[in-house]
Design a protein around this nucleic acid. Structure first.
Ligand SMILES: [Mn+2]
Ligand SMILES: [Mn+2]
Ligand SMILES: [Zn+2]
Ligand SMILES: [Zn+2]
Lengths: 139, 139
DNA sequence: TTAGTCTTTGCAACTTTGTTGCAAAAGGTT
DNA sequence: AACCTTTTGCAACAAAGTTGCAAAGACTAA
């Protein structure tokens, strides 16, 4: 686990610092998407808010995490899979937001279907966010 | 135009006030989605920020506008079509964000395709946001 | 291991965004 | 016009996000 974290940071040419390890660990353990605020709450050692902002930003740039749009004025972040690189993300999967437990998860293996856009329109990236009830919360 | 505005407000059982007319007009003229900040900038008469917040909120509740998720920590708002009612939106269309001109538009006639979710998952609402280059900006 | 260099962090100060309570103003109704 | 209700602006606040800079920490190479 600790090994995995260091490997990810090294691969992205980032120096291994306390805050980066801690925040990366939080994402790995969480298994679901987190808002800036969530990250701040979960850090065991308390880092400055500014450090959290900067860490998330650098993780984004390096392709370690990606953003998920929401209608709640709070962007979510989730771990990228292996194929994301510095400056170029490949996270074209569906995101599912459970309205019951609130968890937002990456559905990595569900492809986003093709879309026919009007003539002249060119799609570069597609975000698909599905709201509903997850399997765990279904009774 | 003025008639149209009044009709919309009346239909939603809202009293016709200066700020509501002005803000609704902004949406009709804009033709594309606007952030809170955009609305504030465009109001000819200056209303208090709080009034803008409250107006957008009440327009949302009444089904006059709907939200569009973004990855930029700024929810966008756009006019609903006729079939949205108080407390129940029907805006399951695609949204297109042009990375060149920045305009976000509702593609009302492009349906969001069906999605096969894993067993136990239940979709209630789907948001699909396509980033790319719009027809106008394509050269 | 240590010394030197470059990067990262925390802090302070600030800006922007969003919220709430309340009195004054405006809108709808008679 | 007089009334009652809703909406607005203001003030005061809370939360979120940004920037510059000095101190602390991470890496490298002697
Ligand atoms: Mn994802
Ligand atoms: Mn729309
Ligand atoms: Zn759930
Ligand atoms: Zn464009």
């Amino acid at each position: 686990m600790e090994d995995q974290i260091i490997k990810i940071l090294r691969k992205s040419q980032l120096s291994v610092t306390e805050s980066r390890r801690n925040i990366l660990e939080i994402f790995i353990q969480a298994g679901s998407a987190l808002a800036h605020h969530d990250v701040e709450e979960k850090t065991s050692e308390r880092f400055d808010r500014v450090t959290v902002y900067r860490t998330l930003q650098v993780f984004m740039e390096k392709g370690i995490i990606h953003t998920i749009p929401t209608t709640e004025n709070a962007v979510l972040y989730a771990l990228c899979k292996d194929d994301c690189e510095e400056g170029h993300h490949h996270d074209n999967h569906i995101h599912f937001v459970c309205e019951d437990c609130g968890a937002t998860t990456c559905m990595d293996d569900i492809h986003i279907p093709e879309i026919k856009l009007p003539l002249g329109y060119n799609a570069l990236q597609i975000n698909m966010v599905v709201n509903g009830i997850c399997a765990k919360c279904k009774k």
